[in-house]
Design a protein around this nucleic acid. Structure first.
Lengths: 154, 154
DNA sequence: CTATGTGCAAAAAGTTTGCACTTTT
DNA sequence: AAAAGTGCAAACTTTTTGCACATAG
């Protein structure tokens, strides 16, 4: 059973560990960055840069887009969040822990993600002559339980 | 063993079948469209809109970008080419025949593709409660034989 | 001849950059 | 006080749109 939102405590821990990750890289903890950490820790799905901007705006009315983009780029670089291309634009989500390799089910309506433990690369893939594998992508798209019951939500 | 380029005859047949596909949809066959068909039939990999534009420009010096985009969009709609998001931008390639479902090895240097018959969705995937699967993505990225020997080519 | 496609120019959307000012440490 | 981050404004890239002209059927 999956929850729409993370519990308050879990979410605060997550936000804290994002902040710690930033500090570990020598980054300064600004209000803007705290708000970004808060957003990613409270949402289990993919968010658009626009949504990040909207979230920060609610607390700092005049945030600029370049701050949003600069920080998203930074967080991707230091590996705290990951970037995905969707038909409607680039989206970001909290990077999953390094505990074990996994892929995702992704809801095309609410952009929530669910772990998928099967990894096709473990199953006898046979690359063409001389091909050196560097990475792979495996995702399953569809509608999550909630959205398939009452579609057209975002 | 894979060839850099398709043979002349194979390539002409492909170009012709792209043209036929367009005609079947009631589209008119313009010089621009012939050139696009030619490009996709001669390249086995993914191309950027900019590369399409450059290709047509060699024959029609003043082609406009909107013609390129309009036609790419059109060809995607009528299912003759497919669109992929790469870190450096959207790319397009000829759609593989409907003969059988397959995925791809994709070279990150030259953007050439190689078929990969294994499909993870056939192997006991267990979606979360109520999740309705609509599509999936599976690609393996790396360097093809040629590029791994002499890297940094595009 | 008519419908469709193209080129042009301009607009829109998303993202990046340089620089002066502000905030964190 | 110094270093790093932010806001602003402007630039840039990619893609889309409206309209007059050109071309395929």
């Amino acid at each position: 059973m999956y929850l729409e939102k993370r519990g308050r405590e879990e979410m605060e821990n997550l936000a804290e560990s994002i902040i710690n990750g930033m500090e570990a890289e020598g980054l300064r903890i600004t209000v803007q960055r705290k708000l970004i950490a808060e957003l990613f820790s409270s949402s289990r799905g993919f968010v658009l840069p626009r949504q990040v901007h909207t979230h920060i705006s609610r607390h700092i009315p005049g945030v600029s887009y370049d701050t949003v983009y600069r920080n998203l780029r930074l967080l991707v670089q230091i590996n705290l969040i990951e970037q995905f291309d969707f038909p409607d634009g680039v989206r970001f989500k909290l990077r999953c822990g390094p505990d074990h390799h996994h892929h995702h089910f992704i809801c095309q309506s609410c952009h929530m993600t669910y772990p998928l433990d099967f990894c096709p690369v473990d199953h006898g893939i046979d690359p063409p002559d001389g091909f050196v594998i560097r990475s792979h992508k495996f995702e399953i798209y569809g509608l999550c339980g909630d959205c398939s019951r009452k579609p057209k939500e975002d």
